[in-house]
Simulated assay, not measured.
Amino acid sequence: MGRPQDPHHPRSFFPFGNPFRVIAPKGSHMSPQLLALLQAFEARLTDRLSKLMLKSKEEALSLSWMTKAMESLLDSYNDIRTLISDLELPVSDWDDKWIEVYLDISRKVLDICNAFTSEFSRLITCNLSLKFALHNLDGNSSKQFVRACSSLDDWKQHIHSMDHRIEKCSTILDNLKGSLDLSKVKNSAKGKVLMQAMYGVKVQTVFVCSVFTAAFSGSPKKLIDLDVADMYSWTPAFSRLQSVINEEIRTRFSNGKFSVLIELEVVDAIVKELNPTIQGGADATVETKSLLKTVEELGNAEEKLSKGLDLLAKRVDQFFKVVLTSRDDLLFAPRSAKAVKNCSLGGNANLKLVS
C-alpha cells in the first residue's frame, strides 16, 4: 500500500487516502457520532458477507446464490446512500476531482452490469432452443425427433460460446483491484468515514463481480483474490467467504465442468443423455417410457434454469439503477452546496456538471 503513483498506474477509486490510515486519522478527530455511524455500517456489511457463506458446496455457484450475492451488493450500495444522508454531506473540502474519479469508477461498474445483462440475454435466447426441442418431444413422429435433435444441437453449439463483453469485465476488475491502493485523504472526519465505508463496498463489488465473470466465462483465471488487512471488522467474514467460494469454483473447473453454474450443468447432462435416444428418429419410440422420463427431467431443469436467470437478471438491473442513483446523490450534494456558496458571494451559480 502507499506506493508512488505514476502515469501508468490505475487511478484510485476514491482518492481519500490509504484506507489503513482511517482507523487512526491524523489531523482530524472522529466524533462518537461519526464513529457510531461507521461501526454500524461495517456491522451490516459483516452480516451481509456472513449470510453469503455456503450451507453446502452444492449451493455454489447456483443461480440462487448468485441472486443473493447481487441482492447483498445492492443492499450495500443503498446503505452507502443512507450513510451519505446521515453524514449530512457535502463536506467543505469535497473536490470536483473526487467526483470525477467516482463517476469514472461507477461507469466501469455500470459497464460490468451491461456485460452481465448481455450474457443473460444470450443464455435466455439459448433456452429458446431447449423449449422448441421440448415442444417437438411431445410427439412421437420421426420428423419431430429430427427437429428436436437439431434444436438440442443448436443449444449445445451456442451455450458454449461467450459474449465478448464478459472478457472485458476482467480488464475492468483488474483496474478496480489496482485502484485499491489509495492516495492521501484530505483532513475531514466525514470524508474518512465515507471513504472507509466505500472501501468495504468496493472490495465486495470486486469479489462478487469476479465470481460472476468466472462463472460466465467458464474460466477460473477470471477469479480475483483480494488480500484485505485484518484491521477492518468485516475482514474475517470476507476472507472466509472469498476462500470458500473461489476454492469451490476452481475445484469444479479442475474437474472438467464446462460451467460452474449448477442449473446449467444439470441441463447439459440431461441433453447429453437424451441425444443418443432421439437421434434414432422413429426408433426412439421403442424407449418410450425411458424417453418420457428424460424429457420430463429436461423440462423441469429448463424451467428452473429460466426462472433462475430471469430473477438474477432482474436483480442486476436493480443494482444498475442503484449505482446510477448513487452517482446522482454524490453529484447533487456538493454542487448544491457550491451553488449556495456562490450565490451568497454574488458569484455565478450556473455550474457545469461533470458527466
Rank of each mutant, 00 (worst) to 15 (best):
P90C: 00
L89I: 07
K321V: 08
N275R: 13
R44W: 09
D96K: 14
L291G: 09
R315G: 06
N348L: 03
Q279N: 10
E273I: 07
L351C: 04
K186D: 15
M53G: 08
E263S: 08
L34R: 04
G27Y: 08
A36D: 12
L264H: 07
S188W: 04
S254V: 14
R11S: 11
T251R: 15
E88G: 06
D75L: 09
T288E: 11
V267F: 03
L34E: 06
T205M: 14
S121C: 09
W234K: 06
R240D: 05
V316E: 05
K338S: 05
Y102L: 15
D268I: 11
T288R: 08
C169M: 15
L291D: 05
L83T: 09
K184Q: 15
L37V: 09
N140C: 09
L173T: 06
N187W: 11
S85D: 11
V271A: 02
C343R: 08
L45I: 09
A337R: 01
P7W: 10
T235H: 04
L330H: 07
L54Y: 03
V286P: 00
S72G: 13
D283K: 09
T235P: 01
K314M: 07
D283N: 05
F207W: 11
S259W: 05
K257Q: 13
T288A: 10
S56I: 01
S233I: 15
K51A: 14
A214I: 09
L38W: 03
Q39L: 12
V203N: 02
T285F: 12
A337H: 00
S188R: 02
G27F: 08
C113W: 02
L331N: 06
E88C: 10
L223D: 07
N114H: 15
Q279E: 12
T213R: 02
S183R: 15
L89T: 02
G280V: 05
D153G: 08
T67V: 00
F207N: 05
N114L: 13
T277C: 07
Q242W: 03
S151G: 00
T117G: 13
G299H: 12
D93R: 08
V354L: 14
D174T: 10
Y232Q: 10
R44N: 13
T294S: 14
E248I: 15
A349H: 00
L83H: 10
S217K: 10
G17N: 04
H164A: 10
Q318V: 04
D75N: 10
L173H: 05
L137V: 05
W65Y: 13
T235G: 02
S129I: 00
I224P: 01
W234L: 11
T288S: 10
M70H: 05
S76Q: 12
W155C: 01
A69E: 01
Q39G: 03
Q204S: 09
L123E: 15
L49R: 01
T325N: 05
L37F: 12
S210P: 08
K221M: 14
G191V: 07
N175M: 13
S56Q: 12
Y77C: 06
